[in-house]
Amino acid sequence: TEEYTYTDKEKADRAAKEWANRGYTVTVTQDGPTYRVRVG
């Protein structure tokens, strides 16, 4: 499991979509002003 942190919702959504397109399980959680994209 890897985790990426973004401050921009659009970038987080785009990253999540790209990982999902590659067949990974993706979870996006909002943590205050940041968005965490957990992959795998």
Rank of each mutant, 00 (worst) to 15 (best):
G40M: 14
V37M: 04
D13V: 12
E3P: 04
V26D: 00
E2I: 15
T29D: 07
K9Y: 11
Y6P: 00
T5P: 04
T29R: 07
V39N: 01
E18Q: 09
E18S: 08
T5L: 14
R14G: 07
E2K: 15
T7G: 08
T29G: 04
G32Y: 03
V37K: 00
D31S: 07
A20N: 07
D31K: 06
T34L: 15
R22M: 13
Y35D: 00
G32D: 02
A12F: 03
R22P: 01
T5M: 10
E18H: 12
T5C: 09
T34R: 08
K11R: 10
T25D: 09
E3Y: 11
D31T: 07
V26Y: 02
V39C: 05
T29H: 10
G32L: 03
Y4W: 09
R38L: 14
Q30L: 09
T25F: 12
T34G: 07
R38G: 05
V26M: 01
R38A: 11
G23N: 03
G40F: 15
R38Q: 14
W19F: 09
R36E: 04
Y6E: 01
A12G: 03
T1H: 13
D13Q: 12
Y35H: 04
R14M: 12
Q30F: 07
D13A: 09
R38K: 12
K11M: 14
V37W: 00
E3V: 13
A15H: 06
K17D: 08
T7N: 11
R38I: 15
A20Q: 12
R38V: 15
Y4A: 03
K17W: 11
E10I: 10
T29L: 12
W19D: 01
N21Y: 09
T7Q: 10
E10K: 09
A16T: 04
E18N: 07
D8K: 05
P33V: 09
R38M: 13
Q30N: 07
D8N: 10
Q30I: 10
T1L: 12
T27K: 07
T1S: 11
E18I: 11
T29F: 13
T34M: 13
K11P: 05
K9Q: 07
T29E: 11
A16Y: 05
R14D: 11
A16R: 04
G40R: 13
Q30S: 08
E2F: 15
Q30A: 09
T1A: 12
E2D: 11
A20D: 04
Y35Q: 01
G32A: 02
D13K: 08
V39G: 01
K17T: 11
A16V: 06
P33T: 12
K11V: 12
T29W: 14
Y6S: 02
G32I: 02
D31A: 06
K17L: 13
G23V: 00
R14H: 11
K11N: 10
N21C: 09
A15L: 05
G40T: 15
E18V: 08
Y4Q: 04
Y35R: 01
T27I: 10
Y35V: 04
Q30T: 08
T1R: 09
Y24F: 12
R14L: 12
G40L: 13
T27A: 07
V28K: 02
R14S: 11
E3T: 11
E10F: 09
T27D: 06
E3N: 06
T1N: 09
A12R: 02
A12E: 00
R36F: 12
R22E: 06
N21I: 10
A12W: 02
E2W: 15
A20M: 13
E10P: 05
G23Q: 02
D8R: 05
E2N: 14
A12M: 04
A12Y: 02
V26I: 04
Y24Q: 03
D31R: 05
Y4D: 03
K9I: 06
K9A: 09
Q30K: 12
T7Y: 14
T1V: 14
W19R: 01
T7M: 11
R36S: 08
T5A: 08
Y24H: 05
A16F: 05
E3G: 05
A15M: 08
R22I: 06
P33R: 08
G40D: 14
Y4V: 05
T5R: 08
Q30M: 10
T25Q: 11
V39A: 03
N21S: 14
V39M: 03
P33G: 14
W19V: 02
W19C: 05
T25M: 10
W19E: 01
V39H: 02
V37N: 00
T25R: 10
T27G: 04
A16Q: 05
A12I: 01
K11W: 07
Y35F: 11
K11G: 10
E18A: 09
V39W: 04
V26N: 00
T34Q: 08
D31I: 12
P33F: 11
G23D: 02
K17Q: 13
V39E: 01
T25V: 12
A20W: 07
K9E: 05
D31W: 06
T25G: 05
K11A: 15
Y6G: 03
R14I: 12
V26H: 00
Y6H: 03
Y24V: 04
Q30Y: 07
T34C: 14
Y35M: 03
T25W: 11
D31Y: 08
G40K: 13
D8F: 04
Q30P: 05
A16M: 06
D8Y: 04
T25N: 10
N21E: 14
T34P: 13
K17P: 00
Y35I: 07
K9D: 03
P33L: 12
K9V: 06
E3L: 08
E2P: 08
V39Y: 03
